[in-house]
């Protein structure tokens, strides 16, 4: 079990306020900049505009640098950094449904990746952009958020089980 700067007894109280403040800062800057991962790829493909794409690429690069920095400062909190070297590269970062073959995780990355890109570009924005647009008063995006909220218990109750069952039927159990 990884250990962070705050002890577990304090951290359980710190989670809501810290994530709330983080969210407010991200939301403010996202509204200012029009930050969007899907829009980044779309603008580059259509017009060779790199402004939005630079945001998403910066996120990848700086998350690596950030994790590297805190891996040096607080190694106990970054238990499995850098996953491709530390862990088994044929399994995803802990948190995914366990007990499936590597091919199942491959499918879990490739199929949702393609479909998320397809759906989001047709609706004009990735999840964060939809959240920001909903806050700006766009009612269509508010319905996108509503769909995500309804989808959450449905995934937990049904889809998560079905998908594991499907993988086992395909012979992709561990």
């Amino acid at each position: 079990m990884a250990t962070g700067i705050l002890a577990a007894e304090i951290a359980i109280y710190a989670v809501p306020p810290v994530t709330l403040l983080l969210g407010i800062l991200i939301g403010y800057l996202a509204q200012r900049s029009g930050f969007c991962s899907i829009g980044g790829f779309r603008d580059y493909f259509l017009f060779r505009h790199t402004r939005l794409l630079s945001g998403y690429l910066a996120l990848i690069v700086f998350s690596f640098l950030g994790y590297l920095l805190f891996w040096i400062l607080t190694p106990a909190a970054m238990e499995h950094f850098f996953w491709a070297f530390e862990g088994d590269p044929s399994s995803p970062v802990p948190g995914a449904p366990a007990g499936l073959a590597p091919a199942a995780y491959l499918l879990f990355s490739v199929v949702p990746g393609f479909l998320v890109g397809l759906i989001c570009v047709l609706l004009g924005g990735c999840p964060i952009r939809q959240t920001v647009m909903a806050s700006e008063g766009n009612r269509k995006s508010a319905f996108f958020l509503l769909g995500m909220c309804v989808g959450s218990p449905v995934f937990a109750a049904f889809v998560s089980r079905w998908i594991v069952l499907l993988m086992k039927t395909l012979g992709l159990g561990a």
Partner: peptide, 28 residues
């Protein structure tokens, strides 16, 4: 600039993991 926000999210996500991970996973 979107790149500024990208950098902010990246570094702060790492910081929040360093700060809060004792409460529970997952990583990243």
């Amino acid at each position: 600039h979107p790149a500024f926000l990208g950098a902010v999210i990246g570094v702060l996500a790492a910081f929040s993991q360093a700060l809060l991970i004792s409460a529970g996973g997952p990583e990243a």
